[in-house]
Amino acid sequence: MNGQSPARPAGDGITPLQQMVASCSGALLTSLFVTPLDVIKIRLQAQKNSLFKGKYYLYSNGLMDHICVCENGWTRARGHFTGTFDAFYKIVRCEGIRALWSGLPPTLVMAVPATVIYFTCYDQLYAALRMRMGDRAQEAPILAGAIARVGSVSVISPLELIRTKLQSQKQSYRELTACIRSAVEAEGWRSLWRGLGPTLLRDVPFSAMYWYNYERGKRWLCERYKTGEPTFSITFTSGAVSGSVAAIVTLPFDVVKTRRQVELGELQAKNLPCELSSTTFGVMKRIVAHNGFKGLFAGFFPRLIKVAPACAIMISSYEFGKAFFRKHNQERTLRSLPSTNT
Rank of each mutant, 00 (worst) to 15 (best):
S238D: 00
R259D: 06
Q261F: 09
E263V: 03
S238F: 01
T258K: 14
K257W: 00
A246R: 06
S244P: 01
L267Q: 11
D254N: 09
V249F: 15
G239N: 06
K257D: 01
E263T: 08
I248L: 15
G243I: 07
K257V: 02
K270F: 01
D254V: 06
R260K: 10
L264Y: 14
G243R: 03
Q268L: 14
E266V: 09
F253Y: 14
Q268W: 01
R259A: 03
V255P: 07
V256T: 03
G243N: 07
K270S: 04
L251A: 13
V249N: 04
Q268P: 05
S244R: 01
V241N: 03
G239Q: 06
Q261I: 13
T258W: 12
A269D: 09
D254K: 08
V245W: 10
P252F: 06
A247W: 13
T250E: 05
V255N: 07
Q268T: 05
V256E: 00
G265C: 06
T258G: 12
N271S: 12
S238Y: 01
F253N: 11
G239S: 06
S244V: 00
V255C: 06
A240L: 03
F253T: 11
G243W: 11
F253K: 11
A247R: 09
R259S: 06
V249A: 13
K257G: 00
R259E: 08
G243Q: 05
S238C: 02
K257Q: 03
E263F: 01
V262W: 09
S244Y: 00
E266G: 09
A247F: 10
R260T: 03
S244G: 04
G239Y: 10
R260E: 04
L264A: 15
V245G: 07
T258F: 12
E266K: 11
S244N: 00
A246C: 10
F253L: 14
R260A: 05
K257Y: 00
R259C: 05
K257H: 01
G239F: 12
V256W: 00
D254I: 01
G265K: 04
A246Y: 12
R260I: 13
G243T: 07
A240P: 02
P252D: 02
T258C: 15
V262I: 14
A240M: 05
G243A: 04
A269W: 02
D254S: 10
T250K: 04
G243V: 08
L267F: 05
P252A: 04
V241Y: 10
E263D: 06
G265D: 07
L264C: 13
E263I: 04
